[in-house]
Amino acid sequence: MAEATADTVKPTAEKGESIWDDVWYSLSHNVTAMVSLGFIALVALLAILSAIFPQILPYDPYAQDLSQSFAAPSAAHWFGCDQQGRDIFSRVIVGGQVSLTVGLLSVSISLVVGVTLGAIAGYKGGKVDTVIMRCMDVLLAVPSILLAITFMAALGKGIDKAVVAIGLVSIPEYARIVRSQILSVKENDYVSAARVIGDSDAKIIFRHVLPNVAPSIIVRATLGISSAILDAAALGFLGLGVQPPQAEWGDMLGRGRNYIFQAPHAMIYPGLAITLTVLAFNLLGDGIRDAVDPKSRRR
């Protein structure tokens, strides 16, 4: 650590040091971002470990013990038990497997497709823009859950299909954000300068335009993870996504809601898991946004 600080006294003077070293330097000195990263790593690690070594869990997340139905949190059951007497702590850990996968994968789908379409529409303009954006408008006109149900009807049941459906329905939002940002960024003189130099369109988009659109994409994507988790729960509620007894945060939250007065802990802990994870992703996203922006980067 001491070595690292000594090396980075003048981080930009060093020759051959890449931009990513600067970004990491800034990020690693951002306490909030690092705490968030630690939390996400912990949740992800527990989810992965519990999938490989189920014996680390205090209880079998699927074992029912009706005598413990709605048991309050105690030393034996840290987060209490649900209606069927299943240990909520074990279920929250296992639930991370599905929820994190759904959140990250569906956001990746909408991010890649949405940013590409939005970038082409915004940069090319004209007819291409009209065609792409009218298609996006059609998708936006239908409520997203209804649209996801339609996709699932075509694709079939299952959590993997739910991921694709959720990813597809949020494409228009990303496309719209990226397009509107690009419309303003591409009017900058440095884009004209790149054209005068002889850069190709692809190079201009990836090197000059998209990096300057990145902040709004990062913020939207981190927020998107939470809505993807909740959408997956909603689909599960309709019997399309997560199927019982599969442990999943959104699904646990939805079922716990029925017993909010008798056993609030059945809802609170999965809810906390979603909230904290989403908060961590948001704060980490803020940190990344600052770290990739030369103006707000820490030195």
Partner: peptide, 29 residues
């Protein structure tokens, strides 16, 4: 034929270092 722009605040990409900005035309061409 090259162009020098009016507004020096808008004509340089804020996310590239000066060295990247000046080397880009050399590499591209």
């Amino acid at each position: 034929i090259q162009l020098i722009f009016q507004d020096p605040y808008a004509s340089l990409n804020p996310r590239m270092t000066v060295s990247q900005i000046v080397s880009e035309p050399i590499i591209t061409n």
